[in-house]
Design a protein around this nucleic acid. Structure first.
Length: 447
DNA sequence: TCTGGGGTCCTAGGACCC
DNA sequence: TCTGGGGTCCTAGGACCC
């Protein structure tokens, strides 16, 4: 019998900050979202102070100061790099791994007592060693030693239950960060401790519905007659219930299918009121999105530009979007700019100040599909030259830093760009930011 | 003054086809 | 007056995730 395991890092962003700056270890620290908007990660110490997740920074600022909480802007370069290192370690411990988010992954293991073959030595020793919990504890120690990141490990027969096991592992320190729900004779008492809104897959709407019917914890949801669930929430609801019952319905996705669309959007650091600024922003997002596409080896068949005003500022809310098809699917920045900038002009309104804009690239398809169109004559040679040009641009930006080479349409000195006032160093990805350890010679013979 | 960004999946309903 | 049945495809909207 196989077991599903969920590993995720505790307070991932805050923990990454502590890895590259040991001075913050043991101190309350929060990490802010883009534009220094909301609190998106808290160290254990900050959590203990009662600082809520997701709270707007400007509302919390005084309280943070009062408790001398360290505040960091988010440093996605650092987090992405730490994530890659974490996943590389996990891969060597698991037969199958699904990288689910920047800081968590599902894996599959065989329960001891069943025969199977594994491809790695770590997974091999784990399953012959006896119980899965000791395997989990060993994995946890390894990650801590290699990366300095504390992780929690949840083990269960299904993904939803593995999420719950992980939650118990985190909540109750006596488990040492590892909890195996599948090893219990009866998980019922544990499910009664899990509030319905804390179940993976239960959001605001579902939890409201559940509470109205007296469904307050995971055990009650598990034992509900399925008919009612089916009527209101369809197959998604039924699947969730089956998972709670210990039947694995959500498969492990080791190789994610290619993306169907990709999006780049940002809030502005201040309201944008001129067309010139909006064009710069849209051009910047388009060129970022085109880079993503080229990295994924995909082309887009259509693109959407969207804008919106600030929903909180009391003025009449304005939100709008416009879509344009591309005659020939493309990941050429110049082609996307030619199609996208006219959309920005169409969406701009002289008396609406904008708070956010974004681009959505749609109808993505693999690069390897051949492109021909009667109305867009383009020789193979022309296309190869364009692709070579994009490759050179991407290469320069990778080697010398993003933005080394950019399109004039993106603007030279944009003032709408997002705020990141307290960002930590790129300690793992930029040579000049690598921490320096100074060896101090011991004094010998001093009296 | 200041409230994140980037995704997926499912369903219902309409257009269209034979 | 009578006005089928079954299918596909697309889109918008709603729900969820980290």
């Amino acid at each position: 019998m196989s077991a599903i395991v969920l590993i995720d890092a505790n307070n991932f962003y805050a923990s990454c900050e502590a890895v590259v700056d040991p001075a913050v270890i043991g101190r309350p620290l929060v990490v802010l979202s883009n534009n220094d908007g909301c609190i998106v990660s808290r160290s254990a110490e900050a959590r203990a102070l009662g600082i809520p997740m997701g709270a707007p920074y400007f509302q919390m600022r005084r309280e943070l100061e009062r408790h001398a909480v360290i505040v960091r802007s988010s440093n996605y370069g650092l987090y992405a790099d730490m994530s890659q290192r974490l996943m590389a370690t996990l891969e060597s411990w698991m037969e199958e791994l699904e990288i689910y988010s920047i800081d968590e992954a599902f894996g599959r293991l065989q329960r001891p007592g069943t025969t199977h073959t594994t491809r790695t030595s770590n997974a091999g020793t784990s399953t012959t060693a006896g119980d899965l919990r000791s395997w989990g504890l060993a994995l946890r120690r390894t990650v801590l030693r290699h990366l300095g990141l504390p992780v929690a490990v949840g083990i269960a027969p299904s993904k939803v239950l593995a999420k719950i096991a992980n939650r118990i592992a985190k909540r109750d320190p006596t488990w040492g960060g590892v909890f195996d729900l599948g090893a219990l004779d009866d998980p019922t008492p544990w499910l009664e401790e899990i509030a319905v809104e804390d179940i993976w897959g239960v959001g605001l709407q579902w939890s409201r519905w559940c509470h109205l019917r007296g469904i307050s914890n995971a055990r009650i949801l598990r034992d509900l007659p399925p008919g009612e669930l089916r009527r209101r929430w369809g197959v998604v609801g039924l699947r969730l219930q089956r998972e709670l019952q210990g039947h694995s319905c959500l498969p492990l996705v080791a190789l994610p299918p290619p993306r169907q669309e990709t999006c780049v959007s940002r809030s502005f650091s201040r309201p944008v009121t001129t067309l010139a600024e909006l064009r710069e922003a849209v051009a910047t997002y388009l060129s970022r999105a085109a880079e993503k596409l080229r990295r994924q080896r995909q082309r887009a068949g259509a693109l959407t530009v969207f804008v919106r005003s600030n929903p909180f500022d009391g003025s009449r809310f304005y939100a709008n979007a416009a879509t344009a098809p591309l005659l020939l699917p493309s990941n050429d920045t110049a082609v996307l700019l030619a199609a996208g900038l006219p959309l920005a002009e169409r969406l701009f309104r002289p008396h609406k100040s904008l708070q956010k804009a974004g681009v959505l690239l749609q109808q993505l398809q693999p690069e390897k599909l051949l492109q021909h169109h009667l109305l867009v004559p383009q020789t193979a040679e022309q296309q190869q030259r364009r692709e070579a040009l994009m490759a050179v641009i991407d290469d320069l930006n990778r080697r010398y830093g993003s933005g080394t080479l950019q399109w004039a349409a993106c603007g030279l000195q944009p003032t709408w760009i997002m705020r990141r006032s307290r960002v930590s160093r790129a300690a793992t990805t930029r040579l000049s930011d690598v921490p320096v350890v100074q060896a101090v010679a011991p004094r010998i013979g001093s009296s």
